[in-house]
């Protein structure tokens, strides 16, 4: 069984975001980039399935600029067998990525695609579901447990207020939530090995996909600063405010 894992290169989780002074976007120049944390969980899950003998091959895919190769190498250092870079300088939005992934799924015929549930940059939370729709496959989003058996997979999902377990026919798309696993630390020998694993590069037009963005970003601004509210004199006034002004209790 082949598993495909899309991985996205994003601003490192620890690096503070800064909105550009001219409001055209977020400043990313020369900043530290890293693999989207949810995608790291996806790679880890796929590699564990391979180590458990359920999967036979784990293919990592990244869509974007040439530097996404580093992200693919990081995925291979965790244990992915090879990488595919869909290289473009165009700003990619989730629908375009889903179409690129569909083209690769048509070629690679994986049984399972494991995606991060969302990227920590655009916070869209769309790509996995869109890919499933385009493929006509079932989906299990926000997975906290994945069991593969024969023709189907059983996935426990994190839903508001609890957990839901569903059974999907394969092939299927699974998207990861935080609690699915804790990714391993890549070791030096594995980072060294990853440098020698195969990495293919294709272009969107070779896959016949139009990746033109559908949404135009007009402006990016800092979030409104929270300002101090009022000081209450005592507990009674606090309760009154919460009940009658804020109406939250």
């Amino acid at each position: 069984m082949k598993i495909l894992v899309p991985v996205k290169r994003v601003l490192d989780y620890n690096v503070k975001v800064r909105v550009k002074a001219d409001g055209t976007g977020v400043d990313l120049s020369n900043l530290k980039m890293a693999m989207n944390p949810f995608d790291e969980i996806a790679v880890e899950e796929a590699v564990r399935l391979k180590e458990a003998g359920v999967a036979t091959e784990v293919v990592a895919v990244s869509c974007g600029v040439a530097a996404c190769q580093e992200t693919l190498r990081a995925a291979m250092a965790i244990g992915a067998d090879r990488g595919i870079l869909v290289e473009t300088d165009v700003e990619l939005q989730p629908l375009a990525v889903a179409k690129l992934l569909k083209a690769l799924c048509d070629k690679e015929a994986p049984q399972v695609v494991i995606c991060g549930k969302q990227a920590i940059d655009d916070d869209a939370n769309q790509t996995g579901q869109m890919l499933a729709a385009l493929m006509g496959w079932p989906q299990a989003t926000f997975a906290s447990k994945v069991t593969l058996a024969g023709e189907s997979t059983t996935v426990t999902r994190e839903i508001d207020g609890g957990l839901e377990t569903i059974e999907l026919k394969l092939p299927a798309v699974v998207t990861t939530d935080l609690r699915l696993n804790e990714p391993r630390y890549a070791t030096l020998p594995n980072i060294m090995k990853a440098k020698k694993k195969p990495l293919d590069t294709v272009k969107p037009d070779e896959l016949g996909v139009d990746v033109a963005p559908r949404l135009a970003t007009l402006k990016v601004a800092e979030p409104p600063k929270r300002s101090a509210g009022v000081r209450v004199a005592d507990v009674a006034q606090l309760v009154d405010k919460l009940k009658n002004e804020a109406k939250v209790i």
Partner: peptide
């Protein structure tokens, strides 16, 4: 290189990876 994934007490945790000699 340093060990990764030790607990506060210095015991190997679930994600323990020993360091490597260079």
């Amino acid at each position: 290189t340093g060990d990764m994934g030790l607990t506060r007490e210095g015991e190997p945790g679930p994600n323990y990876q020993p360091g490597m000699e260079l």
